[in-house]
Amino acid sequence: MEERIFEEIYEQTARPLWAYAARISGSATAADDILQETYIRFLNSPPRVLDLAGAKPYLYKIATNLVRDRFRRLKREVGAEEIQDETAASEGFGQALEMTEVFAGLKDQERALLWLAYVEGYDHREIAGILKLNRVSVRVLLFRARRRLAEALENKK
């Protein structure tokens, strides 16, 4: 892959991708590792069409898989309850602790759905591709995730 093309893609995607990884994994430290591993995988097996429009969802897909792998590994090592605690603690964010806690209270898939839809602005088809779900499921799951977040926000008031 040409260095110039990669640098352009990196400039455009690194910050939002880090934010996604950090919020989905619930850890800023994990996001640093996930970001690096995502780009290494991207460089070693790039998408067929190498432009920003094609690269961005591809990068999110890799990052999502890495977050899932991390959760699976943690589940094996420390058990599901402790993972929930770790995610809820969400270390490394500093400010906006209340927002962090509300978001961390959702399931990891719900966090991914909400982030991709409401922050990145992806449509159902694109989200389905990134999260390896079917389009109809995305609509239903996103609706439920939004409802859960809205309820959590109501309860925080």
């Binding site: 690194a14 910050r15 880090w18 934010a19 950090a22 919020r23 800023a28 996001a31 640093d32 970001l35 964010f93 400010q95 906006a96 927002m99 962090t100 978001f103 982030w115 922050v119």
Partner: peptide, 8 residues
């Protein structure tokens, strides 16, 4: 708002 609060 949450996204704005999340920066590396």
């Amino acid at each position: 708002g949450l996204a704005e609060q999340t920066s590396p």
